[in-house]
Design a protein around this nucleic acid. Sequence first.
DNA 1: GTGGTCTAGACCACG
DNA 2: GTGGTCTAGACCACC
Lengths: 121, 121, 121, 121
Amino acid sequence: MNIAISNTSEKPIYQQLFEQISAQILKGELESGYGLPPIRQAATELGVSIITVKKAWEELERLDLIYTITGKGCFVADLSPDEMLQRRNDMILQRMAIDADYYKSFGLTIEEVFELMRKVY
Amino acid sequence: MNIAISNTSEKPIYQQLFEQISAQILKGELESGYGLPPIRQAATELGVSIITVKKAWEELERLDLIYTITGKGCFVADLSPDEMLQRRNDMILQRMAIDADYYKSFGLTIEEVFELMRKVY
Amino acid sequence: MNIAISNTSEKPIYQQLFEQISAQILKGELESGYGLPPIRQAATELGVSIITVKKAWEELERLDLIYTITGKGCFVADLSPDEMLQRRNDMILQRMAIDADYYKSFGLTIEEVFELMRKVY
Amino acid sequence: MNIAISNTSEKPIYQQLFEQISAQILKGELESGYGLPPIRQAATELGVSIITVKKAWEELERLDLIYTITGKGCFVADLSPDEMLQRRNDMILQRMAIDADYYKSFGLTIEEVFELMRKVY
DNA sequence: GTGGTCTAGACCACG
DNA sequence: GTGGTCTAGACCACC
């Protein structure tokens, strides 16, 4: 659990949580079966409300990235490396399509995108 | 004025307006001195509230992309081609830095970003 | 809005809400574009918390049965009669598969199921 | 004892146990007088808590489907074939009434229910 | 006015 | 101990 929360960000806290944890799962930092901290503990550690943590956890479960055993806790789902790569790419492509639309609205060619992206990456 | 508004989008309408017009200005579609339609007219044409249009116009003026002549209307600012290119890149790079952070959070290399970006572009 | 809430039921309130409204939508009682009552109003009318109503609404939106326009309200989605029938059957079949498993666990044949079902229907 | 437990199911484990065993008794798979495994053994075999097994056994005893002889164990109750059939139907009809209400809430006719049920059975 | 988010605290079922 | 649900009330952005 290595999470950074920004209260000033325009992005909702639960979404920050969701994005960071899903990224950690899909790039293999959190192994299958890994037990996430109890929501109450996570809430106090992160300094947010229980409900906020729960909302993020729910979204993770909805995408089958974690599973819940009531009374036991929440655990990282069992995904094969192939599945993880697929899910990761799906997630990124979904976001990237929106980003690409933005770049295109400014008339950028793919080559220009590459050139600028190399600068900031 | 070629604008597409989505009421159901999670993105605020005024921001959709702002993004699309600023993009059109910075890629040269709207020439310097071009007179934007009066706020009331734009509002009825787009089917949005006057307040919403005003908010978008204010944001455009704040970034010196348009200027207002009281009683006459709003006009696209005078920007040299160099300035326009500079402003366009600034705007894109600002967004791109955020996008890049997102991609990096999933552990993508720049090459992987290029590969996926080529798919959606 | 014709909703019956049971506080004593073992079924969560938000799920009762979801089930009843989704049923009303999918059997055509609530027409496309129909504006649901504001969540605060619905909450007071039903005597439940705003959050409870919101949770039900969120689930409806997740299944594209309603859509939200921030600042305006929530509206029944536009679904063709064919789509509605399809969605209705999907929803029922999902539940029915579980019910069928239960009946099968008692060794019932399909004919016995029909016979008993006719009694209670 | 042929039981399948799902930890991730929303249905409580004790209830899964109860449902499966009661079904086996009422369809005659477990004969009258058959000795259920000791709670501790059942618990370890199924990989669940003793408390959980006990709760299921208690529910079975409450419905007179099994009886306990202190120090000896739990045994399947003596039920005549007629009684078993009656009890089975009672149990199924109770559930079926709920299921029927659900189908009816979607406006299904009994014929539509039969048609769909045939698909999944 | 609307929905979107968040808080702090409570009670319950399950194991 | 765990998660699941619910409450009452607050603040914000958008329109």
